[in-house]
């Protein structure tokens, strides 16, 4: 019989954490990021979660994720700038009011990416089963986590397709004159692929019988040294952010 414990998806997983630890840390960091509205507290969470990501993902994967995250942030900032002409009060927003929401997105990327890249799905389902999460929340969460590697794959194929079709064609001036065409060429197929991939995954989950009631057993949680150390460091980072939130924000 195969040794099921040795199954680990490919990747630069230097920590080899238990899925329970990854899930617990993700929930903890998400709640702390939501609560933190002080710039320094948010920065602490972003830095700690960034370190957590670097230890568990290839630099290329991180760069790709942040490229997408950066594009989203720039789009949002552009919209904010346009809105500021209609609502001048937006121009007076403090740096923290602009930076903190983006730092929350950054924390999400840092925490969810290792979860998606390394945690085994059956391990995650087992963990979720032990947690008091309603099935209606559990199932979309699982499909979302499984969706991330599919998205990265789609993104990379699309980038290649655009390069192959348009590289060296028409010249820089042609594209500079038509920024929306460039935008459309990249994002139209991406959106279509995302919708299609999400639909395919949902169909796969339905056909497999994965449902809110799926029971994946209740094996005991066994924490290794790395699990305990990471949990302790995570708790320390959240505590530090909480202290900064309470005292620095008050000061």
């Amino acid at each position: 019989m195969p040794d099921l414990s040795r199954i680990r998806p490919a990747g630069a997983d230097r920590l080899g954490l238990a899925p329970e630890v990854r899930l617990g840390l993700t929930l903890l960091a998400s709640l702390a990021a939501l609560a933190a509205d002080d710039l320094w507290a948010a920065a602490t969470l972003l830095a700690a979660s960034g370190l957590y990501l670097i230890l568990q993902a290839r630099l290329r994967t991180i760069a790709l994720a942040y490229l997408f995250f950066g594009a989203m942030a720039m789009t949002a900032l552009g919209c904010l700038w346009l809105l500021s002409f209609v609502f001048p009060a937006l121009k007076e927003a403090s740096p923290a009011a602009v930076i903190v929401p983006f730092s929350r997105l950054g924390v999400s990327v840092n925490m969810v990416l290792p979860l998606a890249l390394h945690a085994s799905l059956s391990g995650l389902v087992g963990t979720m089963n032990r947690l008091p999460i309603p099935g209606l929340v559990k199932l979309p969460m699982l499909v979302t986590i499984r969706f991330i590697p599919t998205f990265i794959n789609d993104f990379s194929q699309l980038r290649q397709a655009v390069r192959l079709r348009f590289r060296g064609r028409a010249g820089l001036l042609f594209w500079c004159r038509r920024p929306f065409l460039w935008w459309r060429i990249f994002f139209m197929p991406l959106v279509v692929r995302l919708i299609r991939s999400a639909d395919e995954l949902a169909v796969a989950a339905e056909l497999k019988g994965l449902s809110a009631e799926t029971d994946f057993g209740r094996a005991p949680i066994i924490l290794k040294k790395a699990d305990r150390a990471t949990l302790a460091l995570g708790a320390a980072a959240v505590t530090a952010a909480s202290i900064l939130q309470v005292f620095h924000a008050a000061g």
């Binding site: 085994s120 799905l121 796969a204 497999k208």
Partner: peptide, 17 residues
């Protein structure tokens, strides 16, 4: 498109569970 797990063995296991 039918795979929900990351590895071959895990996919079979997940389908059964």
């Amino acid at each position: 498109a039918q795979f929900l797990a990351a590895s071959v063995e895990e996919e079979l296991l997940l389908t059964l569970r």
